[in-house]
Design a protein around this nucleic acid. Structure first.
Lengths: 216, 216
DNA sequence: AGCTAATAACTGACTGGTCAGTAATATTTT
DNA sequence: AAAATATTACTGACCAGTCAGTTATTAGCT
């Protein structure tokens, strides 16, 4: 049943809105299928646009993916960095806020699919891996390392191996994100992120506490 | 320069040895490229065989992959289960042995690539995800849960939320495996698994210790 | 205000390349 | 010779990226 009324155009020119809509559609489709398996035809359909239009705004699939990362992840990192820069109180509270932020802002949004994407495709698309490593991982690790250094300098944390401890902090959050992407459908119940976060914070409190007693 | 001497056959019939060689080649190629992107042509070449031969021993790509998992992972799980069943000493020592076993047997072998594989392809190949979940994840989680229960029953561990704690135990090891597969090439130094394992065990000791003091 | 280029935005059929799986054929072994 | 094992050449489906052509919008002219 084709729409023949010429008063209703088949499409509109919307130069301003397109990139955002395309990136948004791409996040959805990449998240569902991964980078390599995602069909740009599907991204286009999801964005309500034809495949050719994608190429008016993005030179190729990889650049589209980078745009997705920039839009979905980097603003959160910016926020986290500002948070540390302006922190006044105890370091453990900063850590708690950061992890809670991750659990709510990233894990629960469609951006939670991005870690899986990167891990899945790093081998076959080293440029993407490099991009993500430089723009996201390095910054996130540096941020957490700074929190640990701050805590140790203030005597709130016992001395620890910073690099290993950063990985210990990140791992459960990362694993939650991967879990959601991969196995949520197979388990009856959804994973209890809140319980995991609570247990993780509890473990960190005990791990980081100076010998003389727990930090405030 | 073709070999025309009829006394030197171009190939031999080796019905017994083929499956193992093919599975071994498949582990290598799947590990490098992922499941979807791996070319059976490459698996065949790596196994010193032609593509058609693969189909004499495995009905399709998915079944070949399942065979890889069965061969590379399940024997390690069997060993771990026997280890717990025969354990006499303190529960923390069992935990330590299990994690060390993982860090050495899985992480350092080509089998370390399998977690990445599963996570990467779970969305597009739900049958594989189901298979891995049933055959590996459930068993591994049950195993660790049993260690925790044992420790709590013997008063060596304080009472903890078993499910969350199992995830906390697994996450850093899993993350190491994923890291190797994805970012090792991008960093100068290889990740220091020994340091991470030491820090993790230290953190677990503090986390699981009953209030009255650390377990032996 | 209405008509008419000119331009910018968009479409969708097509190309070139890839690869899992199959069929036809060849070689080795018994 | 027959059976078992292996190879090679092929098929069909898939998809990123391209491009010739179409449609909406804007600007210029009257």
């Amino acid at each position: 049943m084709p729409e023949n009324d010429p008063a209703v155009p088949r499409w509109r020119r919307r130069k301003e809105a397109r990139p955002r809509e395309i990136v948004d559609a791409a996040l959805t489709v990449f998240g569902e299928r991964g980078f390599a398996a995602a069909r740009l035809e599907d991204v286009a359909a999801q964005a309500g646009v034809s495949k050719g239009t994608l190429y008016l705004y993005f030179p190729n699939k990889e650049e589209l993916f980078k745009a997705v990362v920039r839009e979905a992840i980097l603003p959160n990192l910016d926020m986290a960095e500002r948070l540390l820069a302006g922190a006044q109180g105890p370091s453990f509270a900063v850590l708690e806020t950061l992890l809670t932020l991750f659990a709510t802002r990233i894990l629960k949004s469609r951006a939670g699919a991005i870690p899986k994407l990167i891990i899945a495709e790093a081998g076959n698309f080293p440029d993407l891996a490099r991009f993500y490593y430089d723009e996201v991982i390095r910054r996130a690790f540096a941020l957490l390392a700074a929190v640990l250094e701050r805590g140790m300098a203030r005597g709130e944390f016992r001395p620890v191996d910073v690099d290993s401890t950063v990985r210990l902090i990140v791992a459960p959050m990362l694993m939650s994100a991967l879990w959601r992407s991969s196995f949520e459908a197979l388990e009856g119940r959804p994973p209890d992120v809140a319980a995991l976060l609570a247990a993780h914070l509890d473990a960190l409190r005990r791990t980081l506490a100076p010998e003389g007693g727990p930090p405030s």
